[in-house]
């Protein structure tokens, strides 16, 4: 009595190369799922942080007050990321440059914009971390799976060459076992591609928001810088 071939049984029976391919694909799938979930949580957190910060920023709070609050949190060990870190970079540079009275307002603004640009690049780096891995899993794992399948089928046909009587039953298990590799490759690739597209789209959204924020914030800083310098001129 021959029970139906179970998939686990087929995997155990596979050759070394096919097994290696399957192991690679399993690891790729696990890693890509880990990154998918990790990115998902990170993106969700940073979106919430962004909304919270924007709300506070536009609530009319004193900006130096906002900066000090951030300082307290940073001292207590919290990691400040997202829009707030851009704000802090810009504000810090602005207050440092504004103290130097020989700097004119254009130079102050330019300096703080540059600092914000750098902070934004840092943010971009954080957002797109792991995304390239998802992209490469999505594009290569079908090929790896295909390699395993071709290898397995090659072997099962080579075994057939020695058999005098070739029936479907002699090749079918080999082919079935080889096709598992393709299935696994697709299993790893499909979520990775979907997640990559989704996350890169969301990353663009984040960067757009950050860009807009940099422009808005530097327009506020412009006003302050001019007010500061005209006060200096009147005083001096």
């Amino acid at each position: 009595m021959e029970a139906q071939l179970s998939i686990v049984h087929l995997i155990m029976e596979a050759g070394v190369t096919v097994k290696l391919v399957m192991l690679t694909l399993l690891l790729a799938s696990m890693a890509s799922w880990y990154m998918i979930v990790q990115r998902f949580i990170y993106f969700r957190n940073s979106r919430e942080d962004m909304y919270d910060f924007e709300e506070r920023f536009w609530s009319g709070i004193d900006l130096s007050q906002l900066y000090r609050e951030g300082n307290e949190r940073a001292d207590s060990g919290a990691l400040i990321v997202g829009m707030e870190s851009i704000f802090r970079a810009g504000f810090k540079e602005f207050s440092r440059l504004a103290k130097q009275s020989e700097m004119d307002s254009e130079a102050v603004i330019e300096g703080s914009r540059r600092a914000m640009r750098v902070a934004m690049l840092r943010e971009e780096e954080r957002l797109e971390k792991h995304l390239s891995f998802l992209a490469s899993v999505g594009s290569t794992s079908p090929y790896i799976g295909l390699f395993g399948t071709v290898w397995g089928i090659m072997n099962s046909f080579r075994g057939l060459a020695n058999a005098t009587q070739a029936t479907l039953a002699t090749v079918a298990p080999g082919i079935s076992e080889a096709l598992i590799a393709t299935a696994m490759g697709l299993f790893a690739a499909i979520p990775a591609v979907l997640a990559y597209n989704r996350f890169s789209n969301r990353m663009d959204n984040f960067l757009n928001r950050y860009d807009t924020f940099v422009d808005e914030f530097s327009s506020i800083l412009y006003r302050q810088a001019y007010a500061l310098r005209s006060r200096d001129r009147k005083a001096g």
């Binding site: 799922w33 990154m35 979930v37 990790q38 949580i41 990170y42 990691l79 990321v81």
Partner: peptide, 14 residues
């Protein structure tokens, strides 16, 4: 550059 550590939940989910 430091990134927030999110390890446990993705690992468990995976």
């Amino acid at each position: 550059p430091a990134t927030p550590r999110i390890i446990l939940r993705p690992a468990l989910a995976t």
